[in-house]
Design a protein around this nucleic acid. Structure first.
Length: 293
DNA sequence: TCGGCAATAT
DNA sequence: CATATTGCCG
């Protein structure tokens, strides 16, 4: 099933050029929506620390599913031919592997929602703000759905709490993931319910996430993590508690990745990655830069 | 077309 | 069994 897809996927990842190669290409691709999202019509408390720099990391080039075995004719064909497009927009019809929402990734999600505000906390905006490659609206929408339910559940049980530890009522399911991310109290109630208090979080750094999950039986060869130069995985790879895996160790991307980057000082920081183990025994490698604050 | 909710598949 | 994915509806 999806294992098939893992083929091109794993290969594709290896084929992926080093982020540093792509880094210098980080152009300020700020979608109008995104810019508008940040440009909140409220000059009153408009702090000048607005993260205007956000490079959206779109899905990398189309991975040529060149399988050594199946010699099915795949060449030529082009892209419909007619289009006249420059030949972009890769596999849009292909199914991706199950996206594993890791606590860190979730935090990013929550962060985006918090920054945008419930009002603008729509899948599309969130997705754009997150700037996570491979992330699609469906992913966010689906997760957003669960997220709301989680908040709802929490309200009825725990009025305060929230924050690091579980807190009181916690569903065994949703909690596991959601409890890991600090939920802004503002989410529970529409503070004023009118524009003005949208963003709370501090600096929203334009993360560059290279997070692709693949499930299923991986090839014998140990999943080679992206040799991003600084990315190192713990030999143990032991899966610890979501909230316990907080490592303040930030590695700065050396090698002068970008000549001109954001002046906010939010340089591209990436944290160590850890591996996670599915409860089902299904081992999934999760590369996630921890954007913990 | 987007956003949300529900059902389903893995 | 839990979670993510997909589809349908507003």
């Amino acid at each position: 099933m999806r294992e098939d897809e893992s083929n091109w996927f794993s290969k594709w990842e290896e084929e992926l050029p080093s982020p540093e190669e792509l880094m210098p290409l980080s152009q300020t691709l700020i979608t109008p929506d995104l810019a508008m999202a940040f440009d909140i019509p409220n000059p009153s408390t408009t702090t000048s620390n607005n993260p205007q720099l956000l490079h959206q990391t779109l899905t990398p080039p189309p991975p040529p599913p060149n399988n050594t075995t199946s010699s099915e004719f795949v060449d030529s064909a082009e892209l419909g031919g007619g289009g006249g497009s420059g030949g972009d927009e890769p596999a849009r019809t292909l199914k991706r592997p199950r996206l594993v929402w890791t606590p860190q990734l979730h935090k990013r999600f929550v962060d985006a929602v918090a920054h945008l505000g419930i009002k603008n906390a729509v899948p599309k905006t969130i997705m754009q703000l997150m700037s996570v490659d491979g992330l699609t609206r469906e992913n966010v929408a689906s997760h957003l759905q669960k997220y709301r339910l989680y908040l709802k559940r929490m309200q009825g049980i725990s009025s305060g709490g929230g924050g690091g530890g579980a807190g009181g009522g916690s569903d065994p399911a949703t909690d596991h993931l959601f409890a890991s991310s600090p939920v802004p109290a503002h989410f529970l109630h529409p503070a004023g319910g009118r524009p003005g208090s949208e963003h709370f979080l501090s600096t929203f750094v334009p993360y560059h996430h290279q997070h692709h999950q693949m499930a299923g039986p991986l090839p014998q060869q140990p999943q080679q993590y992206r040799q991003i130069g600084h990315i190192g995985l713990q030999p143990n790879g032991q899966f610890e508690h979501p909230f316990m895996s907080n490592r303040p160790v930030l590695h700065r991307i050396g090698g002068a990745p970008v000549g001109h980057h954001n002046p906010v000082g939010a340089s591209p920081y990436v944290e160590d990655m850890e591996s996670g183990t599915a409860a089902n025994g299904r081992k999934v490698l999760t590369l996630f830069p921890t954007g913990d604050d």
